[in-house]
Design a protein around this nucleic acid. Structure first.
Lengths: 196, 196
DNA sequence: TGTAGCATGTAAGGGGTTACATGATTAG
DNA sequence: CTAATCATGTAACCCCTTACATGCTACA
């Protein structure tokens, strides 16, 4: 029945910034929170239905033919604050890149290099996205009250992406020296586990 | 039936480093991969059973009374390499801290400050843990072949933790100036949404 | 006029955790 | 002796994603 508190928080939070349709909630979460949050329709719509039943949100009666957005009510805002005050539980980590590198010996230096390069590219693109977000935020005067908080998350994204790029460059150097060692094995090596 | 490829990778990977029991696989993943991976017994034991059936691992017949560790077979190693070569799919992000800060206006500066402080402490402890891991790795000569790859992941953890700390310090300054603003509201403010 | 985007939903299934059950061994 | 740790499993449940179904509107 009840959707998870995580989902409730994200959906009520989105509506706390501006009234919008369920579809728009999804879009907003994807575009603005995409780097650290995600929700799918399968969660959003049931949550909205539940919230409407509990009078935490209500449909706005716009003259607009095709959209009738939801707006958060006072009860909804109260519930949101209650949820936000709870302890943040971060999900169990599952970083596929790190798992592969950890067992990188089985993959070999070349494949690891590809992985790191691809991670680096992702980080670059995230960094660019964050800087776009920063500019958009500065322009949108509707968000003045939320902006200082949103900036904290943008800054976190930038720090993270910058760190990833620095790590990747360091890792690439390490992998190259590994590959060089492999190409010119020490003379006293007596056997190899696998052919080159 | 078949456990997920993610789990298979982690379990076979652990056994590729050294033979061990299922219990030890869990411990190793928690201690060594804890910052970027996790597996629970509910997945490890079924996976081990399946692998044994498929002859990808086999029980070692140690004289030891209480433990009979699993060792990876050639078929298991082949399967591991196949799995590692697949595209890493990272799970949808769900960062509870960032979600809360994004909607931080509803929480207020004080609560946000607590959140950032707690995140900073976590990062500090992760950094210390990473440096311990680096030392342990240098001492353990059994891991010489895997060490260069494992170092890549330790370095990533260090970069990430360092970035988190730098971000937290910046965020704390931003929050403090926010709180100062709130304490001394501009004279032309006409009403407040909530009492102080 | 048809295709792309907006908008709302639902049902099935997957992947994972938690909690429980059990027993053996070791250490205080 | 008994408490903690090692060790192996399983069943229920939860959360979430995917895929499908539906219809409307804007636009080329």
């Amino acid at each position: 029945m009840a959707s998870s508190e995580q989902t409730q928080m994200a959906v009520l939070g989105a509506l706390s910034i501006a009234p919008m349709t369920g579809y728009a909630v999804r879009e907003q979460i994807r575009e603005t929170l995409g780097h650290f949050w995600s929700e799918s329709f399968g969660q959003i719509y049931p949550a909205l239905a539940e919230f409407e039943r509990l009078a935490m949100i209500e449909r706005l009666d716009t003259g607009d033919s095709r959209s009738s957005p939801f707006a958060i009510t006072d009860q909804g805002t109260a519930r949101l604050r209650e949820l936000l005050a709870g302890e943040p539980q971060q999900p169990k980590p599952r970083n596929g890149l790190m798992l592969r590198l950890f067992f990188g010996r089985q993959l070999g230096p070349e494949a690891c290099r590809e992985l790191v390069l691809s991670a680096r590219a992702q980080a670059e693109s995230q960094l660019a996205h964050m800087q776009d977000a920063r500019n958009d935020l500065a322009k949108d005067t509707d968000l003045d009250d939320d902006a200082p908080y949103i900036l904290l998350t943008i800054s976190a994204g930038e720090h993270g992406a910058t760190a990833s790029i620095a790590w990747a460059d360091e890792a690439l150097r390490a992998i190259e020296s590994l590959a060089a060692q492999k190409a010119q094995p020490r003379p006293h090596a007596t056997f190899t586990e696998e052919r080159p």
